[in-house]
């Protein structure tokens, strides 16, 4: 079996991750339109028939799967497994999602295969003979444009950038990998998992983000922000100072020394617009900023700006959005 594109699929609790659906539908469309051979690889435990079905619905005809409940905790083994598969099917392009999981294994996979890797890709222009990619560098101030000419490469794709294509559904053929029992290794042992209190979606996969800055004065104000977040189904993130003060987890810090995110909608509350923060949010599709200072630099980076007191604006905005939501039911 050989292919042009190998997509590494991520799933969680019996469902495809949104970012994996985006990648699969993107390449599913290319497979149908251009006769490109795309294979999806899914691994881990709890892989149901429904998952295979969901992949097929996105336009994918071939799936390779490996069921194993020990892989989850072992990036080194995952890297070895994917590299071995890639050596068998020889894809020109290996596509992963840019997630917490892939950032561990992807560089090792690329090195094992002796190929280049490009992470956090924002744009893919795919042809069999030439692939054009784009990603952000220099704190979001510049774009790196990459042209691949017939060389094998691995890319990780940012969530929320590819969109979702409607494709012809297939009943995919499934090849189940049988590997020898994975080496019981003492070199990397996951002893425990510390579950964070509220299991929040990883911020870089959120569709809507509410980001708060120092304009928020007390931790109690988070209740107001939470109400807004709930109405829009948003994830709360913040600037670095707010994380340093302990109001928000570091994993939800947005910016140069935090995460880079591309939500469909970002609502920025009480954020002045320091370049270190903007670097992480600049790729949001739509940005709304609320700040009581009309001269705040954040407005330069926003599509919509309200000059006003967040304590007045946010409750009203929450109420109006709730109304709109009910109207649209």
């Amino acid at each position: 079996m050989s292919c042009d594109v190998l997509v590494i699929v991520e799933h969680n609790e019996g469902r495809l991750k949104n970012v994996s659906s985006e990648i699969l539908s993107f390449f599913g469309k290319i497979a149908t339109d251009n006769g490109v051979k795309v294979v999806a690889f899914i691994f881990g435990d709890h892989i149901s028939e429904k998952l295979y079905c969901d992949i097929g619905k996105l336009g994918i005809r071939e799936i390779v799967s490996h069921v194993n409940n020990e892989l989850d905790e072992q990036p080194g083994l995952v890297a070895g497994m994917i590299a071995d598969l890639a050596k068998k099917v020889k894809p020109k392009l290996i596509v992963m999602a840019n997630t917490v999981k892939s950032r561990d294994s992807a560089p090792m996979i690329a090195q094992k295969l002796d190929i280049e890797m490009f992470s956090d890709i924002l744009n893919i222009d795919y042809k069999k003979t030439v692939i054009n990619l784009a990603r952000l560098v220099y704190g979001g101030k510049a774009i790196e444009k990459i042209k691949l000419l017939n060389q094998q490469a691995l890319i990780t794709v940012r969530p929320n950038v590819l969109g979702n294509d409607e494709n012809e559904a297939f009943i995919p053929t499934i090849t189940k990998l049988k590997t020898n029992e994975l080496p019981r290794t003492q070199t990397y042992l996951t002893k425990a998992k510390i579950t964070k209190e509220k299991v929040q979606k990883p911020i870089n996969e959120a569709d809507v983000i509410i980001a708060i800055g120092r304009g928020l004065r007390r931790v109690e104000d988070l209740i107001m922000v939470n109400d807004l977040a709930r109405v829009v189904n948003g994830v709360i993130g913040s600037t670095r100072p707010v994380v340093d003060m302990g109001f928000v987890r570091r994993s939800h810090q947005i910016g140069q020394s935090g995460r880079s995110v591309s939500p469909r909608l970002a609502i920025l509350l009480g954020i002045s617009g320091q370049i270190q923060f903007v670097a992480g949010i600049s790729k949001a599709k739509t940005i709304i900023a609320v700040n009581k200072d009309s001269k705040a630099t954040i407005f330069k980076s926003a599509d919509y700006g309200i000059v006003g007191d967040i304590y007045s604006i946010v409750p009203i905005l929450t109420r109006e959005l709730k109304k709109l939501k009910l109207q649209n039911r």
Binding site: A142, I143, E144, K145, K147, Q151, S294, K300, D303
Partner: peptide
Amino acid sequence: AIIKIEPEKNRKKTYM
């Protein structure tokens, strides 16, 4: 791969 670096475009005008 062939690499080029270009300035990032700014967002269009803000509705204030």
